[in-house]
Nucleic acid binder design. Structure first.
Lengths: 169, 169
DNA sequence: TATTGTTATACTCTATAACTATA
DNA sequence: TATAGTTATAGAGTATAACAATA
């Protein structure tokens, strides 16, 4: 559901020409792509935090909920692996989603150690809203990039990840 | 000082064809550029943490040290602003660098509230080593991207940042 | 009144070790 | 022995509020 272009309720009225660059003292760091990646991510992250907060979601809980909705029966350990989160840290995230009534832990009959994660109707509904907000966030904050640029960017980021997979599995 | 191509001491011997993708359960999240940005950043971040650790640096302390070395006399508040870190959180970072003998807080004669930050000889030396490690990190983890791709990526990331500046100053 | 640096505090994310119950 | 989930804990990063000294 790609959102249509519309006014950003979170954007503040500030013109480009009134913006004062903070001395650009970070020029020495801008040579590093890691620094640029972090800053670019932080702009999208900030927007997400503001938008998800009214739903009672954080970025990590949103990510987990979305994967559970899209992969019914996903095991807790598989979810942790997919998100690169330690299983010990996943417990609190799944606890939170379960406490809010958005998912259920269902014991696996075939392996009584494992838990299959299932989204409830309320969880699916919340996830749908959160996804719309996430699309809106990117639509807003990436509005000066063309579709071609976005595709290029996605592909290059994927390339970085796949390079790392080779280096350290 | 762009590092020359050489073997990565941190890379592990693992072939692409032996890599098992963790079920790709995160397909639903890969539609979001923010998710891809975070994962790409994390690969560079992990490499930096490993490389900087022997020097006694973290990513934030390295960033601060580098900016102080490159901008002698930088005020603590300007440093915080450049790195998008709250001044209250900058105190511990500057404390750490000062405790290790890498920088000095020098009171400003013109404004007795302010502190000018100056790198020591040891600080400059440590910074030089850390910069070399940072270059090596990117040289290694971005080795399957061409120079043209890296330039494109840098420019697109910059565009995201400048878009955000307009939205929320 | 506003700003610089500081302290205190709290919440999130991340990382490790050790435990349980199953396999 | 190994794995799935859990608990406990600690280190970082980040956010806000309040303060002293100075502008």
């Amino acid at each position: 559901m790609p959102p249509t272009k519309k006014a950003d309720p979170f954007a503040q009225q500030q013109r480009l020409d009134s913006y004062e660059h903070p001395a650009a003292a970070d020029a020495g760091l801008r040579r590093f792509l890691g620094y640029r990646l972090k800053r670019a991510y932080n702009t999208l992250r900030s927007g997400m935090l503001v938008r998800l907060e009214p739903l009672g979601l954080r970025i990590t809980t949103f990510s987990a909920l979305l994967l559970i909705v899209h992969n019914p029966g996903l095991r807790q350990s598989a979810l942790a692996s997919a998100l690169d989160i330690k299983t010990s840290n996943m417990v609190a995230i799944v606890d939170d989603l379960e406490a809010k009534g958005w998912i259920k832990r269902k014991p696996e009959p075939t392996d009584r150690r494992a838990l299959a994660l299932i989204a409830t109707t309320a969880g699916k509904s919340t996830c749908k809203k959160a996804e719309a907000l996430a699309f809106e966030n990117e639509e807003t904050l990436l509005n000066n990039l063309s579709d071609a640029e976005l595709n290029t960017l996605s592909a290059l980021l994927e390339k970085i990840e796949s390079s790392a997979e080779i280096s350290h599995g």
